[in-house]
Each structure stands twice: as structure tokens, then as C-alpha cells.
Lab assay of single mutants.
Amino acid sequence: NQASVVANQLIPISTHLTLVMMRSEVVTPVGIPAEDIPRLVSMQVNRAVPLGTTLMPDMVKGYA
């Protein structure tokens, strides 16, 4: 099972991601792979992401 990136807190819209905001967890459905966490740092979310939500490629500007 592959770990995905999950929000560690509420991430407001247009926030630049930091390591503190993300954790890796095995979830269904599978989202952005956990090994991409370093790549996600300083990218922006294009919507509010609630605590515990799996980050999907379409939620992060410039990821997909």
C-alpha cells in the first residue's frame, strides 16, 4: 500500500505548503504520493483543505 499526502491541519486557500502542514498516511482513495512531499513545499493549494483530507493533484497549483 502506497502512502499519500494528507493535510495535518486546515490549509486555507492559496496557502504555500510547508512540511508541518502535511503527513503521509495510507488512505483510500490514493492521492499525491508521500514521496512527493519535498516537491510540494512552497506550492500553493487552490482550495481550502480540511484537516485529514488527502491531497489530490488538482488541489495543488502547478503539481499536475
Rank of each mutant, 00 (worst) to 15 (best):
I11M: 03
P29G: 03
E25H: 08
N1D: 10
I11C: 02
L19Y: 14
S24Q: 08
G31I: 00
V45C: 05
A3F: 09
V41W: 03
I13G: 09
M43I: 04
V60T: 02
R47G: 05
M21R: 00
V5K: 02
T28Q: 15
N1S: 12
M22I: 08
R23H: 05
V26T: 13
P33G: 06
V49R: 01
A34T: 08
M59S: 05
L51H: 12
G31V: 02
M22Y: 02
S4E: 02
M56P: 01
G52M: 04
V27L: 05
M59P: 01
M56Q: 14
A64F: 09
P50Y: 07
M59R: 00
M22L: 14
A64E: 12
L51W: 10
G62K: 09
L55Q: 01
V45T: 10
E25T: 06
Q9I: 10
S24W: 10
D36M: 15
Q44H: 05
L40Y: 02
H16G: 09
T18H: 05
V20I: 11
V41G: 00
S4A: 02
Q9P: 00
S14T: 10
Q9C: 09
I11F: 01
P33M: 06
N46V: 12
L17S: 00
L10Q: 14
N46M: 13
P33I: 08
K61T: 15
L10E: 12
A3E: 12
V60N: 02
E35T: 15
S4Y: 03
L51D: 13
I32K: 00
Y63K: 03
G52K: 02
A48E: 15
R39E: 08
V41N: 03
I11N: 00
Y63S: 03
V60G: 01
V6C: 06
I13Y: 12
M22Q: 00
Q9F: 11
V49N: 02
R39Q: 10
I37T: 07
D36N: 14
A34P: 06
R23Q: 05
V27P: 01
T54W: 03
L10K: 14
Q2T: 10
V30E: 09
D58W: 14
V41E: 06
L17N: 00
D58Y: 15
V27W: 03
N46P: 02
R39A: 07
M22W: 03
P33R: 09
Q9S: 09
I32Q: 00
L17Q: 00
P50C: 07
K61A: 15
I11G: 00
S4K: 00
P29I: 06
V41H: 03
V30P: 15
A7R: 01
P38Q: 11
A3I: 07
I11R: 02
V26F: 09
E25Q: 12
P57M: 06
P57Q: 08
L17H: 00
D36G: 04
M22P: 00
T28M: 14
A34C: 07
S24I: 08
T28I: 15
Y63V: 04
L10T: 11
L55R: 01
I13K: 13
P50F: 07
A64M: 14
Q44N: 04
Q9L: 11
M22T: 01
I37D: 01
Y63L: 06
S24T: 12
S42P: 00
R39C: 08
P38M: 09
V6W: 03
P12T: 07
D58L: 08
V6M: 04
T53W: 11
L40G: 00
